[in-house]
């Protein structure tokens, strides 16, 4: 066999694997759609906008779950992003050499803790703390929609916090990896022009910008799909509310909680349609972030430095 034939085989095999991945994604989508067609047929687009979820009367609207998932994930993102970047910058730029490795292990260890453990910790430790904080919110602030309702401890705020804690190890690991890959020459260029350390760090962050946005989006993706820990602390009450105190519900949580109870077919199909929505939203978020990164690279004329290997390493 000639070497060029070998090359051809290699190309074919890898292309086949890539095609399989794509096929699996499509197959999942099709299957979700097939298994939920009763609900799709009955509710159509109203499924997206309906706010009533009543299995007894057979009325299913997914908006509270979509809202709960997006709201909790966005809140988590807002909390986790600065913390993650801070950790990444500290480890890669500021910490003494000898602390780097231990700190890296430590953050990665956080990523390895099972979600149920976070959930238990959330119930027994975080919820009482959040309740105390909620009680401490001064009365005038309680008039704001953000802080309305009785202080229960369980609810959107606790869920967002726990999600943020779970997302930080991922985002910070990838961001750290990105910073590590920023060429020394970029920092030297900055220093040579009279940058302070902080300004040189900003240059490094700017160089890795698209990768760092990728890291943040990776965290967002994880927050969207996170089930167990959120289910345990969010209160599982389907309502659309801006309040951090209000018990709410997420898409992943409702599927996990109600799947075994779904007695009739329509109920089952409605739950699977929620799975389909989650699938679509996740893909859309991913596609949008890719698009954003891509357009940014077109502007700066540089290829991506987000190394997929780094992500896989952390995600594993």
């Amino acid at each position: 066999m000639t070497r060029s034939r070998d090359d051809g085989m290699f190309r074919f095999t890898t292309a086949a694997f890539a095609a399989v991945v794509l096929l699996i994604v499509i197959a999942i989508g099709v299957e979700l759609w097939r298994q939920s067609f009763l609900s799709i047929e009955k509710f159509g687009l109203h499924f997206w906008t309906g706010t009533i979820w009543n299995p007894v009367s057979g009325q299913f609207g997914a908006l509270p779950f979509i809202w709960g998932t997006l709201y909790s994930s966005i809140l988590a993102l807002i909390i986790a992003t600065p913390i993650s970047l801070g950790i990444a910058v500290f480890i890669s730029e500021l910490s003494p050499q000898m602390l780097r490795q231990p700190l890296t292990y430590l953050t990665e260890l956080l990523a390895a803790i099972p979600s149920i453990v976070y959930g238990l910790w959330g119930i027994f430790v975080l919820t009482p703390i959040v309740r105390k904080l909620e009680l401490a919110v001064p009365d005038p602030l309680k008039k704001l929609p953000l802080f309305s309702g009785p202080p229960l401890g369980v609810g959107m705020g606790t869920a967002a916090l726990i999600l943020a804690i779970m997302v930080v190890p991922f985002t910070s690991s990838v961001a750290r990896e990105i910073l590590k890959n920023v060429p020394m020459a970029q920092r030297e260029a900055a220093y040579a022009l009279g940058s302070t350390r902080w300004e040189a760090i900003k240059v490094a962050l700017g160089y890795g910008k698209s990768g760092i946005i990728g890291a943040v989006m990776l965290g967002f993706g994880r927050a969207l799909g996170e089930t167990m820990a959120v289910t345990m602390v969010i209160g599982n009450n389907p309502q659309v509310s801006a309040s951090l105190f209000a018990p709410q519900y997420t898409m992943a949580a409702v599927i996990a909680n109600e799947f075994t109870e779904a007695a009739d077919e329509l109920y089952l199909h409605a739950l699977i349609e929620i799975g389909l929505l989650l699938f679509i939203i996740t893909i859309a978020v991913n596609a949008l972030s890719r698009l954003f990164i891509w357009s940014m690279q077109k502007r700066t004329g540089r290829t991506v430095i987000l190394r997929p290997a780094a992500i896989e390493e952390v995600a594993a």
Partner: peptide
Amino acid sequence: FQKSNPFP
């Protein structure tokens, strides 16, 4: 520097 290092 030896290798040009413009910012992106």
